[in-house]
Structures are given as C-alpha cells and as structure tokens.
C-alpha cells in the first residue's frame, strides 16, 4: 500500500511516539486524523501538520469509550472519505509491584489496587481493541485496503513492577495473529494487522528521568542510545508499504540485552 494519498488514524497522536507517527505520515502525503485525550496537544500537532503543508484533522477522544471510538472513526471518514491505516498508540503506565512488604515484619503492607490496574487495562487493552474493531468495521464496510497497528512493548516479556502494563502489552502483541486468523476465516483479504514492540524510546518520560537511571538502562542497549520515535514511525511506514509483513509483532529495541550479552 502506498503512503501518499492514504488516510491514517493515530490514537495518542498528541505526543510521544504517536506525534512522530502523525508527522511521518503527513510529511509523506498521507491524510492524518490526530486523536488524543488532550485538546491542547491535538491543536499543537494539527498546527504543525498545517505548517508542513499536510492534511489533518484533530479529534479529542477517550479510547476506552465505545461512543468515542465510533466518533473518531466516523469523523475521519467524514473528512477524508476513507480509512486505510490505524495506529493504536494511546497507552498509559501506572507502575507498582503487586505486593509491598513491610521491611520490619515481612508482612504485606500494601497491595496494588484497582486504581492502578484497571485504567491501564482499559486504555492499553480495551482501548486498542475498540480502536481496531471500529477501524476494521469501517475498512470492511468501505471496501478499503487497510493496515491495523497495535503498539506493544519489549516489556511484553514481563517487566517486574509492570504487571498491569506488561499484561496489556503481551496481549497487544498477540492481537495481530488472532485478528488475521479471523480475517482469514471470514475471507477478509485486504486488511493486514501488525504489532510494533518498541524498546526504551526517547519520549519525554524517559529523557526527563534521573540521568544515572537512564545510563543504567542504556548499558543494556547494544546501540548505546534510546530508540528515537521517528525510527518507530519509519518502521510503521515500512509495514504500510511492505505487504508481506502481516500477523506478527516486530521488536525495535536497538538491541536490548540481559547482562552478559544475551539478547532479550
């Protein structure tokens, strides 16, 4: 599928990886729908796309709401007449261990509450499901060729302190296989699905962290630096153009290793 002229919808498009995905596609002649929770971020990104001579709309929405995922898919089709690529970038973290022990007694002092568990499941898993489901519905009913992209994470392998996040990201990594299996069964041949699993990425969350902690993270990366959001956007662009990539999740980590040089 060609990028130029295609219509791309990006959730979480107001900052981080999503913002770079929006700009990557807009620069290459795609029409882009910028979906985010924060109107200010949407306004900034749409203004940037306008400055680069691109085509875009901004839609404020919460991906955990069925009414709102239906809204942004409808608005995209209303604006551009079709939908070809959906990138479900919207995601959150609320890190913590399942149990916290009292140092003196060794007994459980605190448990991870649903206030940390449920929002992560709702945004990263249910939000991705609703976004892909409603996008696929529009693509099938419109007869448009398409690509559905989930954003997983290298922490799908199981990161301590991220029981909630890792659980959603391993599910996001599995979705392409199940969705394409279903499409195969239903005779839907012109819509693909891939997952992207980034490693440690140069988003404000990481670049702004304690620099010693950042150094410790980079010690395990063969590339010796964080992955740039633009590099992830380029990989998604390659997935759009290369139709052989399907029903799989690709890692982009810069070569993340365990101690003693064993690749993760």
């Amino acid at each position: 599928m060609e990028i130029k002229g295609s219509v791309v919808l990006v959730t979480g498009g107001g900052n981080g990886i999503g913002e770079q995905v929006v700009k990557f596609f807009a620069q290459r002649g795609a029409k882009v729908a910028v979906v985010d929770m924060v109107q200010k971020n949407i306004d900034r990104v749409v203004a940037d796309v306008k400055a680069m001579g691109g085509e875009a709309i901004g839609v404020q929405a919460n991906v955990t709401s069925e009414a709102e995922t239906a809204k942004f898919v409808k608005a995209t089709v209303e604006a551009f007449g079709k939908l070809n690529v959906t990138v479900a970038c919207a995601g959150i973290i609320k890190d913590g261990t399942m149990l916290t022990l009292d140092k003196e007694t060794g007994k459980v002092a605190r448990k991870m509450g649903l206030d940390k568990w449920q929002p992560v499941i709702d945004v990263n898993l249910t939000g991705t499901f609703l976004t892909l489901r409603d996008s696929a519905e529009a693509m099938v009913n419109g007869g448009w060729p398409g690509l559905l992209v989930t954003i997983s994470s290298v922490n799908k392998a199981g990161q301590v302190g991220q029981l909630n996040y890792s659980s959603t990201k391993v599910a996001d990594a599995l979705m392409p296989k199940i969705i394409i299996g279903e499409f195969m069964m239903r005779g839907i041949k012109n819509i693909r699905c891939v997952g992207i699993a980034p490693g440690y990425t140069a988003t404000p969350m990481l670049t702004g962290m304690n620099q010693d902690a950042l150094k410790a993270i980079l010690a395990d990366v063969h590339l010796g630096r964080l992955v740039e959001p633009e590099e992830i956007a380029k990989l998604i662009g390659h997935c759009v153009e290369n139709e052989a990539i399907n029903a799989t999740t690709l890692e982009i980590t810069g070569g993340l290793c365990y101690e003693h040089g064993i690749a993760k």
Binding site: D43, V46, G54, E55, G58, A79
Partner: peptide, 23 residues
C-alpha cells in the same frame, strides 16, 4: 486552533461550508 487542514480539495465554497458543518 486548527480543527482540520487541507480538507475537501477542489470543493466549491458552498460545498466546503456544508461539509465543514457535517465534520
């Protein structure tokens, strides 16, 4: 704030106004 940019290429002013309202 820009709601949408580069929309409805080639549309007349009347058509663009109607489509903008719908969008």
């Amino acid at each position: 704030a820009v709601v949408g940019t580069g929309l409805f290429p080639g549309a007349t002013a009347t058509d663009a106004a109607a489509r903008a309202r719908a969008l």
